[in-house]
Every structure is written in C-alpha cells, then in structure tokens.
Amino acid sequence: MIEIKDLHKSYGDKHAVRGISFKVEKGEVLGFLGPNGAGKSTTMNIISGYLSMTSGSVIINGHDILDEPEEAKKCIGYLPELPPLYLDMTVLEYLTFVCDLKKVPKDQRKVQLAKILSMVKITDVADRLIGNLSKGYKQRVGIAQALVGDPEILILDEPTVGLDPNQILEIRKLISKLAKTKTIIISSHILSEIQAMCDRVVIINHGKVAAIDTITDLSARLTGNSKLLLCFKGAIKDVINSLRTIPGVSSISERVTNESGIHEIEIIVDYSAGGDVRANIFYNMAKNGWPILEFRSLDPTLEEVFLSITSA
C-alpha cells in the first residue's frame, strides 16, 4: 500500500531525515513514534506530498508521489500537525470547500459530509465558525477534512496533541473505528497512545529508523526489561538488601525519601529469568513487615525505549 524507500531530507545543512525505509500493508495501522524533532512530521509531510525529499522514493498504491502526484494524493487523507483550517469559514463551508478540492462528486457530497460529521461528532458545530471552536473541535474538523473524499490511506500527524484526556479517548475510539476499513499512519511521541491504537510501530530517532516491530514484540522487548516503583515505610538499606536477593531483580536505586521515613525506590527487573518477580517482591516485603504504600510498574519513557533499542 505504502512503500517508503531510503528517504532522505535535508534542510540546507541540517539532515532531518537520514534514510528511512518501511512498508505499510493494506488495512494496517502503523504507529510512527519518535521524540520531538526526530523527523516524524517531515517524513509525513513527504509522504503526503507537501514536501519534497532529497532522495528516496514514496510509492502510494503503486503511484510514485513525484511522478504521479495527483493519483497518489487521491488515495491520501492528511491531517498535518497544524490542521489546515480557514478560521473565517464555518465547519460546513470549510468541509464543502475541501470536497471541491478533492473533487467529490456533487451528488455524493451531502451523504458523505453527513457521515463524516456524525463520525467525528461535529454535527452540532457544523454551522459554527471554525475560529470560534475549541482546540478539540478544531482537531476533529481537521480529521474530518482528512476523511473527505473517502481516501484509502489516512496520515494523521499527532492527532491527539493538546487534547484533554476525554477527547483523546474519543479520538482513539474513532481511529480504531476507522482502522477497520482504512490504512492509517499515526505519529506520536507518546508510547502508550501508539500501543493503544497500532498494529505495528516504526520508531525513529535522529531521522533514522530505530526499530520496526509489531506491538506485541515491542511490548515483549520492553517488558523484558522493566521498571517497578515501590513506595514503602521502613529502613531503606535493609529493604534494598533484602530485595536484591530476589532472582530477576537487576538493580535498585533510591528515588525519594521524606522525613516521615517513607521511601520510594526504583527496581529494574529482568523478566527473562522466569517467574513473576513482582509477586516475589510483594511476599518479600510482607514477610519482613514493611508496609507497601504503592507498587506499580513504571511506563518506560520514550528515551528509555530508545536507549534500550539502540543499545540492544
């Protein structure tokens, strides 16, 4: 469906993208993960045809984005980082304009727009001025814009950025719904978001692909070396020494200690040793009479993922 080969892009001396290649199969939801400034938006802009690459090729549905731009662009709905909204138009006016741009036949327009409006849940603001809408609604109008013309491929650049958790949830739901019929690329710098929505992840850093993996493999890779946070009351040294004896615990470091003797420690565990280390820790603490105030697994930060991936 989408084939990206050895993509390079430089702005003057700055090389934003340094050779990215991957493929997206039909019906797949691909996560595009990377820290800010990793080249996500640049790559997506290139795929959508907005920017030119320095070298490499993007083939969409068999059409090269350079050689057959119109054919290729017909297959794509694109939501850029900053939704391309005309603030002086109402939602309906704007979407009708996009329909015109995407050459949606006049007789299908009404049906399609109604469908999109209800799907993105903006029917009630259809006659309001885009400039007066909240950020969440603007984002949804941006998504609606990408959906106009019923493209087979959706490219969504940080669709949930700046939204409140409720809105994020709704948009995730919407994307899962869309995923049934469309090929989707979503970029994000939040791992959990990608995990929630995607089948496969491309992780890029410094303009390069750091890893391409399915979510399950990635989880395995990540959970294979995981962090736990433990908050307890007791003598810190004793606890650490005691926990060290548990098989699978690789290292322990102290995070916070406050005056009332409550400590927070970070435990790095290695699940590959077999068995659930967490149960063992619990029993160990219970056995020694150290009350556990909080015990949870720490989500790895993206940086840690990169570290773990690049160092592996």
């Binding site: 050895d6 390079h8 430089s10 090389h15 340094r18 050779g19 030119s52 690459m53 320095t54 070298s55 490499g56 090729s57 350079l66 050689d67």
Partner: peptide
C-alpha cells in the same frame, strides 16, 4: 559518511 552517501544519491528527478 552514511549521510553523505544518502545525499550523493540525490534524486536526479528533482
């Protein structure tokens, strides 16, 4: 050097 290689292969179509 890797980057340079990428740049050298600049697409002639542009």
């Amino acid at each position: 050097s890797n980057d340079k290689k990428g740049m050298d292969a600049k697409d002639s179509r542009f």
